[in-house]
Design a protein around this nucleic acid. Structure first.
Lengths: 226, 226
DNA sequence: GGACAATTGTCTAATATTGAACAGCGCCGC
DNA sequence: GCGGCGCTGTTCAATATTAGACAATTGTCC
């Protein structure tokens, strides 16, 4: 799913440096918990860089059903789809906690990357994004919801989690409703599967109510129920 | 779904020109119907340009279920995910008809784009890809299979179809099995839905057995069954 | 042109999934 | 500290979906 390869991490750092440089004179934007950074259809063509906090991206279908696409954390960039030139945001970006952001107009963003010779790196970054999404699509098409929930948990853990010796800790609070909107099923179903995972000791909650993912055990379980 | 905006079409033409230039001295690769261009795990890091024919991209899950990601036609580029540097193809590329291709090593591909000042254009192209895939993901998560089949047909029609006055003609032969692997359901189900669409006069087969999509009627129907 | 293979349309029973309901619980704001 | 609200865990009946099976048809290859 999310590929943790050294090369793309290296590029991410370079891009961060470049963007910090670009935005050092502009002040941060603070977005309170549950507030939107942008909503579907907004025309403002800017890219965002997260200094602190978490942002979730959600699309809503014509019937009003929600699909959560991603959760981004400190150091991540989002809103880069305005580079497509299609105009109008496709999704809504909402702060899951109080979050502070830097905003860069899409043109300036590209210029900065060009100036710092990061265009090829950014192409690689986007290619990884396409590859990840391809994986997500294949999972939605071919595997059942329990399996998908497992893979989604692993994906989130690898992207946002803090590593503990034998497990990964997820400090962001993600509701079952939100998981349902990522996995493509209903809330009661997520509840049942999470309970099952808990009974099998594949996940647990620590005293601070953080979700702990036991990466190896969960991976092994998912492989066993094929 | 597939966005037909003039800007990305313009870039596609520029890229085609650039690639034709790059490959004018190398001979075309001919791939017979049902033969593979590459399969999962192949290490060869090259990008392909389709001169003639169609190529389908398919991923296979661990249980052996298939997911068809895309069908590409003349003028399209595929295999560009090797730019991610992840190594190893994620999907299998198969010719649906006798197809002729030009092959460009991934490094040369980037150099050529850089030389022709097309890096930013390619970033835009990838951003459109990400946006399209995002749409596909949202559909898989939020809408039912009949609706998804409809949207998939529209997507294919817009990407590959020839325009007739009130409809779009799809000249590539796509089996129900393949549609099932795109939509994420079973073959009998596709059969039933296609029959229904036919009865409602949203699609039809012409004398040459080409599938005709009545874009407006189908769109209206999909909106009506929300 | 004939034989084989692949595709389609259809049916079923078994299974999975939905959506709605409701109680308990914990967190939040006041 | 209290009330309320949102989240969780669980249930259930109604519905949708799957995974076979099978003829009928079409296409393909000698």
């Amino acid at each position: 799913m999310i590929q943790q390869n050294p090369q793309s991490d290296q590029f991410k750092e370079q891009m961060q440096g470049s963007l910090l440089n670009e935005t050092k004179n502009s002040s941060a934007i603070n977005v309170g918990k549950h507030n939107h950074v942008y909503t579907v259809g907004d025309e403002r063509e800017t890219v965002y860089f997260i200094e602190k906090g978490q942002i979730k991206l959600v699309m809503v279908s014509s019937e009003g059903k929600e699909c959560m696409l991603a959760i981004h954390g400190a150091g991540d960039v989002f809103g880069e789809l305005c580079l497509s030139g299609l105009g109008g945001r496709l999704e809504t970006a909402t702060a899951m906690e109080d979050t502070s952001l830097k905003e860069i107009p899409c043109g300036k963003f590209l210029n900065r990357l060009a100036k710092d010779s990061l265009l090829e790196g950014f192409i690689k970054y986007l290619a990884v994004r396409v590859a990840d999404q391809q994986q997500v699509i294949a999972n939605l098409v071919t595997v059942d919801s329990e399996q998908r929930l497992g893979k989604t948990l692993l994906q989130i853990a690898r992207k946002l989690g803090k590593k503990d010796p034998r497990s990964i800790r997820i400090e962001v609070k993600i509701s079952h409703e939100e998981l349902a909107a990522m996995v493509g099923t209903t809330r009661p179903r997520i509840s049942v599967f999470m309970q099952r995972f808990r009974n099998l000791d594949l996940i647990e909650y620590n005293t601070e109510h953080h979700l702990i993912i036991k990466e190896h055990k969960l991976t092994a379980y998912l492989a066993s129920i094929l």
